[in-house]
Nucleic acid binder design. Structure first.
Lengths: 207, 207
DNA sequence: ATCAGTTTTTGAATTCAGTCACAAAACTTG
DNA sequence: CAAGTTTTGTGACTGAATTCAAAAACTGAT
């Protein structure tokens, strides 16, 4: 596994680069230099060069980086060249927002199973998928090959949902409920919490 | 400004501590030790002590930290003891989710102005606030004392909205559109991007 | 072909964050 | 009040990430 050598901070920046490179490509540029890219993401060019150097030699000196192969390589490193199916739990405001979210990295993410516990919604179709009862989470997930679950339910219910997802054999969770989930070692949790983001912002905003 | 000495990683963790401490307080605990808190957030206790030590001596040795004063102090450091009013642009799925988001740090965040460009929605009331036309953003924001704007519109429109917010005199933006906004120096942008989070996750999920 | 101008590559130097380990402090118990 | 226990606070250490700078490689022009 060569991966282990790539610093985690670098990995965290890759999706950011990817987003910029895709836009660059759309604009028709074939190459980009580290300092151009650095400008676009408000960083130092040296950091970008170092980051990219961790997984091979991409640039040609005097010219810059070829956009297309660079995109392909980053997607490969992040495993975005594979197809990922998702289970979504909770079709409230957040859940619906996710379902209608347009740019899921060029279709490599797809919602496969959708759950809710509202009898009004269960059985209906949303985005062409039938909504299942939340009590069936572990069963249905187990039968599928889904590796990622997304939790978009009220706080109190998040614990139980996480538990069911884990029992269904999930290996990654994205949790929109602002509570801390205690999961076994093999299961990675990503917490997305608006008030946390807001707090980081207010710290910096006072003159 | 003493702030400058606090490592940014520490600041990033404060909201996390805050969330846990609030829950601890609800459970009726008056004090908490660094190792108890460490367990709750899956970290080493030393890191927590170090973090807290950056802004004063809080704990009493042999006992731990008093929860209430600690919460108060963290809220103060993050400037959460002040009232923050927000401008929300875009009342689609994401926008609605935000409006109905319950725990905005004990009411220190409040949506004051709401905008959209859909004639069907403009003029209507949502959460007790009238929805204004997006073309009025810079004017209305300028007249208000709002410092934070939230962008929850489709990608292409995000640039223009950001521009208007900046002209309205905003100093922080939270952007849910997965595009990079180029703002003047005084304006801080926080990017929230689901596919970025997902990508960080997929990197780690392959055996 | 050579030179000037760019821009990557890469190891070294620096800065920053995290861990460790222990002294000092406060509380508890007899 | 003294001995024992717990837990903080912190300086020294270790390791990771970032920046720096010298060397190498490409382009285009003369």
């Amino acid at each position: 596994m060569k991966k282990a050598e790539i610093p985690k901070e670098t990995v965290n920046r890759l999706p950011l680069y990817l987003r910029c490179l895709n836009r660059i490509l759309l604009r028709g540029h074939k190459t980009i230099s580290s300092s151009e890219l650095a400008n676009l993401v408000s960083m130092g060019p040296a950091k970008i060069r170092k980051d990219l150097s961790y997984f091979g030699k991409f640039g040609t000196r005097g010219v810059g980086y070829e956009v297309k192969p660079l995109i392909a390589r980053i997607r490969e490193i992040l495993n975005l060249d594979k197809n990922w199916t998702l289970a979504l739990v909770g079709v409230g405001n957040v859940g619906s927002a996710l379902l209608s979210y347009p740019g899921f990295n060029r279709g490599c993410f797809k919602f496969e199973l959708i759950f809710d516990d509202d009898p009004e919604i269960i059985g209906k179709e949303i985005s062409g998928k039938k909504v299942h009862d939340s009590s069936e989470i572990s069963d249905l997930v187990k039968k599928s090959s889904i590796k990622i679950g997304i939790i978009a339910v009220p706080n109190e219910k998040a614990y139980d949902v996480a538990d069911q997802l884990v029992r269904g054999g999930i290996s990654g969770i994205i949790n929109f409920a602002p509570v801390y989930l205690d999961t076994p070692d093999g299961v990675k949790v990503y917490q997305i919490d608006l008030s946390t983001e807001l707090s980081s912002l207010t710290y910096h905003l006072v003159s």
